[in-house]
Design a protein around this nucleic acid. Structure first.
Length: 404
DNA sequence: TATTATT
């Protein structure tokens, strides 16, 4: 994949940073459909893309999204890297390449790693991005922290220097009073050390606390002290004691979790045709992941076309599904494509085609999406979408190159 | 009674 030249990129960075900041803050404040194929996506996007600059910090994502860890001024230690970032709350299906592609839109990346389970290969939902230039790292925090991707709100912050002392510092807390807020939970635990994240789990329907939560400390010794001091103790005003222990390690989740997904009834939610198609492909992907099998439901078999190498299948480029986006404005940049297509699923690459001399967008661009079903929904949703004063044309890229 | 923050 060819990148835009460093010079082009540098020229665009200032504008993009501003816009991404605006959009990201709107993303944080706006309601967002958890399922990309509901009509709410478009409504939400209208709000995001057409509103003027607003910088509020309301968040409907992880409430620790802007905690006070690792701000540039605070990182006093000389060990602290000013280029290395940790990215949390990544969508499950996001790959390392997608991570690199997204953060590479800010500046040159020295290295990038998506952390995966050693056994299952499943993404653990976080990764590291190390920039060449500390300014780009700072810019990435300012512009991408709080970005909504699919159902997740990603968190971008400086990575602490890696050490054994910060591992296994995550606590699971149960028996909490249902009335206890996250702030109160933090107040209770903060006497034992620096809290990195906190969360109270809530009922998805009612939003009421389930009385359980997590506290991640900066260091394991702090977590140990919190267990000693708070396990089996009653919080102020509570009638029952709480339980505090180390949280289960996510890596003990075996392939059973994967298999259980396979046997879930696909028709439980009575989905429409589009969602049925999407689920069929998801199942296919799961089978593929678990057993390395391509079933007859493979995207390669869609429309009854069977092909060995993807020849004659529109938009299929081997590494994903290439989407053609036409009627972009001259000042369009990559960030607008990320913003439009990201909510629909895994996006591996975006590119705005620019004039070599003027560096202005020539009116079109390309987006590569990993999964057929997500690409199809994105196209169906975005074709005809009004962006500013232009109506976009969105389709799978064809191989036809005839010049009229 | 369980989300995914240290390569």
């Amino acid at each position: 994949m060819s990148e835009s030249s460093p010079m082009n990129r540098r020229q665009n960075q200032t504008n993009m940073a501003v816009r991404l900041c605006d959009v990201a803050s709107l993303l944080r404040s706006g309601s967002w459909a958890p399922e990309p194929w509901t009509g709410q996506v478009i409504a939400a996007m209208e709000t995001q893309l057409s509103n003027g600059p607003t910088c509020n910090n309301t968040s409907n994502g992880p409430s620790t999204i802007s905690n006070n860890c690792s701000s540039p001024v605070e990182s006093g230690s000389i060990e602290d890297s000013k280029t290395n970032l940790i990215v949390n709350y990544l969508p499950q299906n996001m790959t390392q390449e997608e991570l690199k592609s997204l953060f590479g839109s800010i500046g040159e990346i020295e290295s990038c790693k998506l952390v995966r389970d050693k056994i299952t290969g499943q993404s653990l939902g976080y990764g590291f991005v190390n920039y060449v230039d500390p300014k780009d790292a700072e810019k990435a925090i300012n512009t991408l922290n709080g970005l909504r991707l699919q159902t997740k709100t990603i968190k971008v912050s400086y990575a602490r220097p890696s050490s054994a002392s910060i591992r296994d510092a995550n606590l699971y807390v149960s028996g909490l009073p249902k009335t206890m807020t996250q702030k109160e939970l933090e107040q209770l635990f903060s006497q034992y050390g620096r809290i990195i994240t906190s969360r109270i789990l809530v009922d998805q329907v009612t939003g009421v606390s389930r009385g359980v939560g997590f506290i991640r400390f900066d260091r394991r010794v702090e977590a140990e002290e919190a267990i000693k001091g708070l396990n089996c103790q009653k919080p102020p005003g509570a009638t029952e004691p709480i339980t505090v222990k180390f949280a289960n390690n996510p890596s003990q989740k075996t392939s059973q979790a994967l298999l259980s997904q396979l046997y879930q009834s696909p028709n439980r939610r009575y989905p429409g045709p589009l969602a049925q198609q999407a689920q069929r492909f998801r199942l296919d992907n799961l089978l593929n992941m678990a057993y390395g099998v391509k079933s007859r439901f493979s995207p390669m078999a869609i429309d009854g076309v069977t092909s060995l190498a993807g020849i004659n299948i529109p938009g299929h480029a081997g590494t994903g599904w290439c989407i053609f986006v036409y009627n972009l404005a001259p000042d369009a940049d990559e960030s607008i494509l990320w913003q439009m297509f990201g909510p629909f699923g895994a996006v591996t690459n975006v590119k705005v085609i620019r004039d070599f001399n003027t560096n202005k967008c020539k009116g079109f661009g390309f987006v590569t999406m990993t999964n057929y079903d997500e690409a199809a929904v994105a196209i169906a949703s975005l074709n005809g979408y009004r962006l500013g004063d232009r109506v976009l044309q969105v389709s799978f890229k064809t191989n036809k190159t005839h010049k009229a």
